[in-house]
Design a protein around this nucleic acid. Structure first.
Length: 123
DNA sequence: TAGCTGACTCCAT
DNA sequence: AATGGAGCCAGCT
């Protein structure tokens, strides 16, 4: 049969895999994920990729999109949206403290060690 | 092919 | 802390 499978953007896949490496209870910013995914300076592309995350996850594993916030440590959705509330709820379920739209990066930002970096780079 | 858009970031105020 | 403008560039129309 001819290919009917929806083409998947390889950069998106790389981004999803990087996001899957964020540990429970931690967050990362868009630019950080872009850098780790080998796409320096493409923070906006990370947002695009997260909007395209399959509901079924990727490679049998969920993609924790909600662990990604902007460089100011804030949720990027407008406060009166469902996406905003869903992201905040999911983070709080993981013990991440969200004050208004803000998360204290000093406390909750993911700081990958060398082993984690290598794991991401290999995929 | 050419514009437009945006789950961003940086810098000034 | 909050707000606004310029730069950014892959993906979409």
């Amino acid at each position: 049969m001819s290919s009917t499978a929806k083409p998947v953007n390889n950069k998106h896949v790389k981004i999803w895999q990087t996001v899957q490496a964020i540990p429970l209870g931690k967050v990362a910013c868009y630019g950080q994920i872009a850098d780790l995914a080998g796409l320096p300076g493409r923070a906006r592309l990370v947002g695009k990729a997260l909007a395209a995350v399959p509901k079924t996850g990727w490679c049998g594993q969920a993609v924790p999109w909600y662990r990604v916030v902007n460089s100011q440590g804030k949720i990027s959705f407008a406060p009166d949206t469902e996406n905003f509330q869903r992201q905040r709820d999911l983070l709080q379920d993981e013990q991440v403290v969200v004050i208004g739209a803000r998360i204290k990066l000093k406390t909750f930002q993911w700081q990958p060690d060398l082993a984690e970096l290598l794991f991401v780079l290999e995929h």
